[in-house]
């Protein structure tokens, strides 16, 4: 499965992969969002959690009023998916598990 497959899920706005510095490696954003900003933010969130909680590898899901941001640390970098709040989050999570 590739990142493109993830973005085909209904109400998924985009997905991407960044390194720990927040530099974009790969992305596919289908809606009006800045991939670099999303990637930088995903990297920051993961680094903050690792630093604060002392976690080796972590996964964080953030819910705002409009969107949900999935971020996960993988061997290749930090993977992130952004979707609308009313998307099928369970399905997205399963797909992310398979992809990573």
């Amino acid at each position: 499965m590739k990142i493109e497959d993830l973005t085909k899920i209904h109400k998924v706005l985009g997905a991407g992969l960044v390194d720990h510095d927040g530099a974009l490696i790969e992305s596919r954003i289908t809606f009006d969002y800045d991939a670099e900003k999303l990637g930088a933010m995903a990297a920051r969130v993961i680094d903050r959690c690792k630093e604060s909680l002392g976690i080796e590898r972590t996964s964080v899901i953030l819910y705002t009023q409009n969107i949900v941001l999935f971020t996960r640390e993988t061997d290749k970098g930090i993977f992130f998916v952004v979707c609308q709040k009313d998307a099928n989050l369970g399905l997205v999570k399963v797909k992310i598990d398979k992809l990573t």
Partner: peptide, 30 residues
């Protein structure tokens, strides 16, 4: 303290995306 720190930091980060109001977050540890 750590959870509040993460929460506040992420809230600030979302402002960059013009997204307000972090409602909840799930942090998965091993």
């Amino acid at each position: 303290a750590l959870v509040a720190e993460i929460y506040n930091d992420v809230t600030d980060s979302f402002k960059m995306l013009k997204e307000e109001g972090l409602e909840r977050c799930i942090i998965e540890k091993y």
